[in-house]
């Protein structure tokens, strides 16, 4: 794979977006650097882009040889925003690779396959632009039908929505997985919601701009990470819905829709008292990176 990569003069960057990941980041950097930079030079750079951790995430990552950046220090003239999508978007500006691999930093069973499994389709298949991970470990002796193991938000929100409006995209087995590898010329053309909606928006935008054949999926076997609470999943779903509706409106899939609310109301109980908690969640978006002048200057690009 390394030979094929080099024969195409491709460069590959790994971005690990972080916020307080000191427990898992050390192993991710050690393992991926040792195996995929030193032993098999598949990666040209490993960068941690941090949202402002207050634990030792940056020190740990730097100690084991990653390049570390604070998201706020990248493109400092822009008004800073907080969110994982912001880190992913700024990685396009900061990192040099023709391909950028995004891997979440909270994976406790990290393995080199998380990277080589994602970049292989981009190296071997020129038409592939966007490779998405899914996780499935069938029992060796089981021939029975089973669910493909999407998370709760995938099964309750995303799959029903895609089934209604983008049936082609229901073929994406785990649409919300945080691990994907994408060519720069695609990344620079798409919007980046800075919060929960980034994965959903990518799928819709890449699909509408480049077609279904731009996607590939790769089975990374198993991913172990901390489970989120139902309440956290509610917040996530609300952000995703905003992203989705924005696109549905822009693509004229849903007509005559008013501006939607940005307040999520969740109910919580304290002893026997029930109260409603209001949470403002605004899914702000970053424009395609190609629209940023500093980026065009750095990578010698022009607006078409």
């Amino acid at each position: 794979m390394v030979e094929d990569k080099e024969s195409q003069n491709l460069t590959i960057s790994l971005c690990l977006p972080t916020l307080n990941e000191e427990k898992t980041i050390g192993k991710e950097v050690v393992l991926l650097k040792s195996e995929l930079v030193d032993r098999y030079p598949l990666l040209d750079e490993i960068a941690v882009i941090d949202s402002g951790s207050d634990d030792n995430t940056l020190e740990v990552a730097q100690n084991f040889g990653a390049d570390v950046y604070l998201a706020d220090d990248i493109l400092p003239d822009l008004e800073p925003k907080k969110g994982k999508g912001e880190n992913l978007w700024k990685a396009i500006y900061q990192l040099e690779g023709d391909i950028i691999v995004y891997v979440d930093a909270d994976i406790s069973n990290i393995h080199p396959r998380f990277v080589y499994g994602l970049v292989a389709p981009l190296i071997y298949r020129k038409e592939v632009q966007y490779v998405k991970a899914f996780y499935d470990r069938p029992l060796a002796i089981s021939g029975e039908k089973r669910a493909s193991g999407g998370g709760r938000v995938t099964e309750i929100l995303i799959r029903p929505l895609f089934s209604l409006f983008f049936p082609d995209l229901t073929g994406i087995i785990q649409p919300l997985s945080g691990e994907y590898a994408v060519r720069r010329n695609v990344l620079e053309q798409i919007h980046f919601p800075i919060g929960y909606g980034v994965e959903t928006s990518h799928l819709i935008d890449v699909y509408t701009k480049f077609g279904l054949h731009a996607f590939a999926q790769t089975d990374l076997d198993q991913r172990v990470h901390e489970n989120k609470s139902t309440r956290a999943l509610g917040k996530m779903s609300f952000g995703i819905l905003q992203t989705f509706l924005k696109r549905a409106k822009a693509l004229d899939i849903i007509s005559d829709m008013k501006d939607y609310e940005t307040i999520l109301r969740q109910t919580q109980a304290i002893d026997k008292r029930y109260e409603q908690k209001e949470l403002q969640i605004v899914e702000e978006e970053r424009p395609p990176m190609i629209e940023i002048e500093a980026y065009r200057e750095k990578f010698n690009r022009t607006l078409s």
């Binding site: 050690v30 393992l31 040792s34 030193d38 032993r39 084991f64 393995h111």
Partner: peptide
Amino acid sequence: KEILLANLAMIGE
């Protein structure tokens, strides 16, 4: 050290 620690993590898991 990274090579040793990577081996340690992969073997240990």
